[in-house]
Computed example of a mutant assay.
Amino acid sequence: MKTWKPLQNITAPMFMILLASLFFNQTVTAQIVLTQNSFDAFLNSEFSNTSSVSSDAEKIIALLEIKGADRTWDFTTLTFDGTFTGSGKSETTSTTAGTPGAGDEHFDQATHVSRNQFSVKGIMNDEEVELEFLSYEYSIINDDAFVSLGSIIMDDENPEEVFITQYSRPGQVYYTFPATFESAWDYEYEDEFIIGGLDNTSDYSVNVVIDGWGELITPNGTFNVLRITKTEALDFGFFKLESMEVEFVNAQGFPIAILNIEKIPFTEEYDEESAEATLNEFSTGTSNPREISSDLPDRATLHQNYPNPFNPATFITYDLAEAATVSLDIYSITGIKVMPLVNNRVQQAGRHSVSVDASGLASGVYIYQLRTGTQVLTRKMTLIK
């Protein structure tokens, strides 16, 4: 019997995808440009929604083939065979304190920590499905990118106990900024799931391209969207399992419609049995944006990069006690500047994180230095290739 993948694999990132449709209503205009500020509105929200699911493979594949500028995707042609209702609440801070990820060196790099409560119920393939969960998602959102570090899902019967811990190392790059038509990025990450005493790790390579913009026609109205195609490969050695997810996102940067499909191994053909489309409609919803709170230090703090040692990607995180003009650079052990990261940029008080791609550097020990105008802070990092 076919299982609805979004429900089967529901995690904190999926919660945020469902939450995003809260901001459905918009006037059709020109193509969208996404920045860090695009995500502010829904970081603290309460909502209820209806999600419809289709397995109409032939029409889903036809929608997958429509790419380019000023295009139209008509979801009214799909037959939906499953409907779910849900409600939830998300609250976001900039500290891991008081969350189950506190003290975890991977999650401590987060600039945004979202506490998500969610419930969903409905009928799929004549089966009743009901789910409630509390989760925490740990992310880095800055001027350069939106990166998910992973999530923790609590036990629904005992909310004080951790049920699933998911690490994405060094992180899943949801977006690089600014993101608009023809933007593209690649990344690799290790995904580790810890469930009870079981620990499973998989390595993925991902290609993301914003390959379309235009109008999305649904039974609920017509919306201005970007089309984002993510192709993910799981390498088993003798073959790769490839899956494709196409998201149609609104001006707040999250999907109001999603297409999923897998490729048949050893071919470039689609596996029609895996085709699935999800359309979200929020019947009620209120946005309650709040200032992201944080216990600010008395002085600027430069944290140890993570992971360390690393190859070739890592994150450097620092806290500012007040707004400052910031420079962050990497030096060789002999004092030669090899990579500027932040160049005299005015930044607000709070936590900041910068991603580092050291693929152009040789193995060795490097020094990274933060200058704020009143302080100079230095730490060492080790690149091993």
Rank of each mutant, 00 (worst) to 15 (best):
V326P: 07
W4L: 14
I316D: 02
V338F: 05
I261N: 05
I66T: 13
Y331V: 01
L78D: 12
F254C: 14
V356R: 08
G360T: 12
Y189E: 09
Y167R: 06
P312R: 00
N260M: 09
T180C: 04
S139P: 01
T218L: 00
N37D: 15
A20H: 08
N311L: 06
V249I: 15
E161F: 06
M244N: 08
F47D: 09
D81R: 10
N25S: 13
G88N: 04
S243R: 12
G364I: 03
E161Q: 13
D144N: 10
D319F: 01
T96S: 08
M339E: 12
K337S: 04
T79C: 05
A321M: 04
S363L: 00
A251L: 10
E245V: 15
G335D: 00
D191F: 11
D56E: 02
V365L: 00
P312D: 03
T180L: 00
T284E: 12
N207M: 09
T222I: 15
K67P: 02
N200P: 02
T334I: 02
T286P: 03
V326E: 03
N280P: 00
L43Q: 15
G212L: 10
T378Y: 01
V346A: 12
Q26Y: 07
N250T: 15
M1K: 10
E128I: 14
E132P: 02
G196I: 15
T165N: 08
